[in-house]
Nucleic acid binder design. Sequence first.
DNA 1: GTGTAGACTGGCGTCGACA
DNA 2: TTGTCGACGCCAGTCTACA
Lengths: 87, 87
Amino acid sequence: MSKKNREKDLELIAFGITLKNIRKEKGYTQEQLSDYSRIDRSFISELENGEKAPTLLTLISLAKALRIKPSMLMQILEFELDKLTQK
Amino acid sequence: MSKKNREKDLELIAFGITLKNIRKEKGYTQEQLSDYSRIDRSFISELENGEKAPTLLTLISLAKALRIKPSMLMQILEFELDKLTQK
DNA sequence: GTGTAGACTGGCGTCGACA
DNA sequence: TTGTCGACGCCAGTCTACA
């Protein structure tokens, strides 16, 4: 549809917030998470800022590295998304 | 690396099974799900057969079309994945 | 420790068609 | 109704580098 005004998707913003929060709770740096998940650090940075959309496999890799279930990650994402859409 | 005989990822197989099961439970055809989610029908077919990996946005679109929470979809995926890895 | 930019490769996702 | 095929655009994801 109207992709002219490329504003970032709220889902990606919510995912970024979720990822960053969990990472910090676990006390990891982006670089450590990159090592554990084998996802490029610069890409993790972009994910946390809601600039890119991960694939399912990337999502699962990150969840594993964070020792959290993907479904739990999605639950938190939904929670963050609610907060964003209520504003 | 370089697996000549590209065996499919178990995660994608599990996702495909999950997607197909939920779709059938809702009584949708691939074409109907395609209309609701605005994902190409041929791509949905490939997803159900574990041949492709969806992005997070595609995953959420499909979940919405199926009137199920993404976190619930992931829970079922984890269940199916357990069944696959136990064999 | 993080954000970003550029260049690059592979694969996500679309479209049309046919069994 | 679904699987698959070919063609293709665009973006996921990598890598290097710098503030």
